[in-house]
């Protein structure tokens, strides 16, 4: 801040220039300044470099599901079972996250249709404590699967997470087998389970329900991996390969079926749901 701005901002009768910040947004990919309105209308995809920015759960649901979908209630789970405290109390961190987010935790389920095909869509929101998987996330994932089982329709899960929620300790780890119980039930019921991996999907989430889809889709450029890049770098002590753990890299190594641009997702999902019609298990 230069002296002029400082002086001007300290004068109570001059309005601070905040509008400029809201009007413009810097693309995290190419650092270009973009009109916020234009950026948002383009689904947070940079019109210049094609970088896919992060979007919240509600926007994602609206983007994928037809109008009139139902948002499932957040399941009630035991809050702060470990009475966890680091530099801050876990309950305070939760309060803070909730103040900034329309939802009570990081996984929201919508039940409706995709281009007329019945579907349940679960969305993990990186904006809520880094999308981390705790009991609320695991339980909401299961509720979504249950709804798909009741409706006998496909389950689409959009993943985004730094990993497990450390503040719930071992109980966050237990969400891995727990979610896997439900992906198995979908399989047994002959229902398709489609995973859409978005930026970033790492850790325990990747090592469970995010990698068990019948079809695996990734958004362009999304960071997807098990171990964090810093951890890997500390282990091998050499430079990581170009594009390491990005969606395209995973495609090349056979871990995802397709990399699909955000604008084409709805149509892609509709086509997949057409092919993978529920049938009774053999």
């Amino acid at each position: 801040m230069n002296w002029f701005t400082r002086v001007r901002n300290s004068l109570p009768f001059v309005a601070k220039r905040t509008t400029e910040e809201n009007l413009w947004v810097k693309c995290p990919g190419c650092q270009e300044m973009l009109f916020t309105k234009e950026y948002e209308e383009n689904l947070n995809v940079c019109p210049r470099c094609g970088h896919h920015g992060r979007i919240g759960a509600d926007r994602r649901l609206t983007l994928l599901l037809d109008d009139g979908f139902e948002v499932l209630d957040q399941p009630e789970v035991r809050e702060d079972p470990l009475k966890f405290r680091d530099s801050k109390k876990y309950t305070d961190r939760l309060k803070q996250a909730r103040a900034k987010n329309p939802h009570a935790d990081a996984f929201t389920v919508g039940s409706g249709e995709i281009e007329g095909r019945p579907a349940v869509v679960g969305v993990q929101d990186f904006g809520f404590m880094g999308g981390s998987m705790g009991m609320a996330v695991g339980t909401a994932f299961c509720r979504g699967a249950e709804r798909a089982l009741t409706r006998k329709c496909g389950y689409v899960v959009v993943t985004a997470a730094g990993g497990a929620r450390m503040q719930e300790g071992i109980l966050s780890l237990m969400q891995m087998p727990k979610a896997t119980v439900m992906t198995r039930r979908l399989k047994a019921a002959g229902l398709p389970y489609i995973v859409l991996l978005t930026d970033p999907t790492t850790g325990g989430v990747t090592a469970s329900y995010a990698m068990l889809g019948d079809v695996q889709i990734a958004e362009p450029g999304a960071l997807i991996g098990f171990a964090g890049q810093r951890v890997i770098q500390d282990t091998i002590r050499e430079k990581l390969p170009e594009g390491f753990q990005r969606a395209e890299y995973l495609k090349e190594h056979g871990m995802v079926d397709m990399v699909v641009k955000r604008h084409d997702l709805r149509e892609t999902l509709a086509t997949l749901l057409d092919y993978l019609q529920p049938r009774a298990a053999a």
């Binding site: 171990a227 890997i232 390491f244």
Partner: peptide
């Protein structure tokens, strides 16, 4: 946690 482990789908 290594490059080849990630490549082969850890």
């Amino acid at each position: 946690p290594g490059v080849e482990a990630e490549e082969r789908g850890q």
